[in-house]
């Protein structure tokens, strides 16, 4: 076993990088998708639930009230563009590319190359089935804010040291 394999406190998942949340309050790599929520620029009550599947890049975008996004007609809409951009800020381009199974060109690829590689595959538009679970994951994510802090010690957190390394 290497030191990494026999370390109790090795950091497997780096913390999210800080980013501004105003436009895209939620983005994650989960359920085999890059998925998240994009706030509407015009209606404060409305959000768009957007997702792109790993590997095939099948995409979907609709409002939280299950209305289709007008922009997502045959190609990535602006919400999905924003989602990809914020995912790169939060996780770093390499982790997003690895999760989405995108082969990035050599050099110093960024969000443009990532977006380009996925668009070039001419992804299909999916149905809106993913929207409800993604939105409920977003609500669950927000609900963490409402949980009470405690001052009883959590010895288990000894296994979760901070790291200065970022995604």
């Amino acid at each position: 076993m290497s030191d990494w394999e026999r370390s109790s406190t090795v950091r497997v998942v780096p913390p999210a990088r800080a980013r501004r949340l105003a436009k895209v309050p939620f983005v994650e790599l989960a359920d085999g998708r890059l998925q998240g929520v994009v706030s509407s620029g015009s209606d404060i009550e409305r959000v768009y639930v957007s997702s792109v599947e790993a590997a095939g890049f099948t995409f979907a975008c609709s409002t939280n009230n299950n209305r289709p996004c007008g922009g997502a007609r045959g190609y990535f809409c602006n919400h999905i563009r924003a989602l990809i951009g914020e995912a790169v800020l939060q996780y770093g381009v390499e982790r997003v590319a690895r999760y989405m199974r995108v082969d990035l060109p050599d050099g110093e690829p960024g969000v443009i190359e990532l977006h380009g590689a996925m668009s070039a595959a001419r992804p299909a538009q999916g149905d809106r089935a993913a929207a409800a679970p993604v939105f409920s994951r977003f609500l669950r994510h927000l609900a963490y804010l409402e949980l009470a802090p405690t001052t009883a010690p959590l010895p288990e957190m000894q296994w979760f040291p901070p790291t200065r390394g970022v995604a």
């Binding site: 309050p25 939060q90 963490y144 804010l145 802090p149 001052t151 010690p153």
Partner: peptide, 26 residues
Amino acid sequence: VRASVSAPKPDTVVGAGLWQLLRPHM
């Protein structure tokens, strides 16, 4: 001795945000 304070959090609360979450409780 040790004194602890902990809180669940959304993953986008990081850096100084961690202190902000804990600060009011200890």
